[in-house]
Write a protein that binds this DNA or RNA. Sequence first.
DNA 1: TTGCGTGCAAAGGTTTTGCATGGCA
DNA 2: TGCCATGCAAAACCTTTGCACGCAA
Lengths: 139, 139
Amino acid sequence: MNSRSKYKTKQREILIRYLESVPGVHITAGDVADYFRKQGSAIGQSTIYRQLESLVDEGIINKYVIDGNSPACFEYIGAECHAEAETCFHCKCEKCGKLIHLHCDELEEIQEHLYAEHRFRMDPLRTVFYGLCDECLQN
Amino acid sequence: MNSRSKYKTKQREILIRYLESVPGVHITAGDVADYFRKQGSAIGQSTIYRQLESLVDEGIINKYVIDGNSPACFEYIGAECHAEAETCFHCKCEKCGKLIHLHCDELEEIQEHLYAEHRFRMDPLRTVFYGLCDECLQN
DNA sequence: TTGCGTGCAAAGGTTTTGCATGGCA
DNA sequence: TGCCATGCAAAACCTTTGCACGCAA
């Protein structure tokens, strides 16, 4: 839960660089392992899992769970979202997989409402709205 | 995906009766197995998983996947309560893991807003708000 | 009788953990 | 030097699958 990196290791560096290079793409832990294995600079799988967990905690990447059996997906959060982390919401289409970024005042009110009325401090960086996008609704 | 029961077996009967008896409660497949084991009327775990899958397909129960590692949660809906279940929102505390159910008009407006303004049809059955609960905020 | 449902055991796949080693600060 | 990170192997975990048997219709 609270695993923030204190050291700057080589594995962490190249992992971040890789994730940065594929913004808006969903990557699994297995994908990461495969990528570095093919690169000839393999990283141990436990390191991958531990670093991904840290990066999620640090808000550098997001973790998405589509369903219990498929592996979890990770995705780099762009610099623009990072800066406005607290006002960036994500919607994911369950059909086409598209990820939509939203900046919207009304959605920000959700957070306030959840906290004021339900005593729940929602974290928009971790929260993903699942549903259907416009295109898929019409098909 | 398409596994609808054709036979009315004893295991299916008592499973439905149990789920009906705990409406609004999240139950895992393991919980179900434990319950019947203690009752002295154990059901094979594969039967539990297969029946739960059928019941989801038939719209009798809902399945929630909170995160990839914890087991999936199931919850009785019942024909008359279906509308209610669709307005049930879930908040998960990232610290203590607690799962909170919310029925709230203001949250329903989120759905309408997302659709009206952003053309996104959110599915409350799939969406989980992540954040911190009241207790964990104070500690 | 037909074929679906059951249950056991085993497999499957993802993620976590123990522990010794290696590397950052 | 003192921790933290790494990596290997093994374990843990939930869920699915194969197969023979049992039971509903």
